[in-house]
Amino acid sequence: MFMKVALTIAFLASWVQLVLGAPVASIASLEKRDVFVPPVLYPHAGTVWTKGQRHNVTWDTSSAPVNITNKEGTILLRKGDLTTPLILATGFDILLGRIEVTVPWVISDTDYSVVLFGDSGNFSPQFQIIGSEL
């Protein structure tokens, strides 16, 4: 019986030591962060891109909160309901409001959109890309 109690106390003591050794941030040092989901303005419905062209993907930054959770942006191409692995731009400041991309060589279709990632993913309306017929 004594052995069980001693092992339990040793286990609890090591657990308390682990917890007390963890870094603690004071509430005053933590900043409130907000999720920013800017609407994509371009491309919009009716837009036609052609492979190899350069275009500015634009989004509205007018309602950006002061403290954004993730300011680093990435733009991916989406086909229908699937986000493709095609990265059009990455590593830019989400507060820029626009970034130039090169239209990739894809199969022509009318159901493409761009996905703007920062805090979360926000899709443009679907538009057309005139691409490469394989």
Results as ranks from 00 to 15, higher is better:
Gly46Leu: 10
Met1Cys: 09
Thr90Lys: 12
Val115Cys: 12
Ile107Phe: 07
Met3Leu: 12
Asp109Ala: 15
Ser113His: 02
Gly80Tyr: 09
Glu133Trp: 05
Pro125Ala: 14
Leu77Cys: 08
Ala64Leu: 06
His44Pro: 01
Pro125Thr: 05
Leu86Asn: 12
Ser26Lys: 11
Ile130Val: 14
Pro38Cys: 06
Thr47Arg: 00
Lys79Thr: 06
Ile27Leu: 11
Val66Phe: 02
Leu96Lys: 09
Leu96Met: 09
Tyr112Ser: 09
Ile27Arg: 08
Gly52Gln: 04
Val19Thr: 11
Leu30Thr: 13
Ser14Thr: 15
Ser120Ala: 12
Asp81Tyr: 03
Trp59Met: 02
Val57Gly: 00
Leu20Glu: 12
Ser108Pro: 04
Pro85Met: 07
Thr110Pro: 01
Thr90Arg: 04
Phe117Cys: 05
His44Gln: 12
Ile75Trp: 03
Ala6Pro: 00
Ser113Gly: 11
Thr47Leu: 00
Pro39Arg: 01
Leu86Ile: 15
Val40His: 08
Gly121Ala: 15
Thr74His: 05
Ser63Asp: 15
Gln126Gly: 00
Ala13Ser: 14
Gln53Cys: 01
Phe36Arg: 04
Thr8Cys: 13
Gly46Glu: 07
Thr50Phe: 12
Ala25Phe: 02
Lys71Pro: 05
Val106Met: 03
Val35Lys: 12
Ala13Gly: 01
Asn67Arg: 08
Val16His: 01
Pro104Ala: 13
Gln53His: 10
Pro38Gly: 03
Asp34Tyr: 11
Phe11Arg: 04
Leu134Pro: 15
Arg78Gln: 13
Asp81Asn: 13
Val66Leu: 10
Ser124Lys: 03
Phe36Val: 10
Phe92Gly: 03
Ser113Arg: 01
Ile9Ala: 14
Ala89Ile: 07
Arg98Met: 01
Tyr112Val: 06
Glu72Arg: 12
Trp59Ser: 04
Phe123Arg: 06
Leu12Tyr: 09
Val114Trp: 06
Pro23Lys: 11
Ile27Trp: 04
Pro104Ile: 08
Lys79Gly: 04
Val5Asn: 09
Gly52Phe: 04
Lys51Tyr: 08
Val57Glu: 02
Val114Cys: 11
Leu82Phe: 02
Ser120Trp: 03
Gly73Thr: 05
Pro65Gly: 02
Ala28Trp: 00
Leu18Val: 02
Val115Arg: 08
Gly52Thr: 08
Met3Phe: 11
Val103Cys: 06
Ser132Asp: 12
Ser29Cys: 08
Thr84Ser: 13
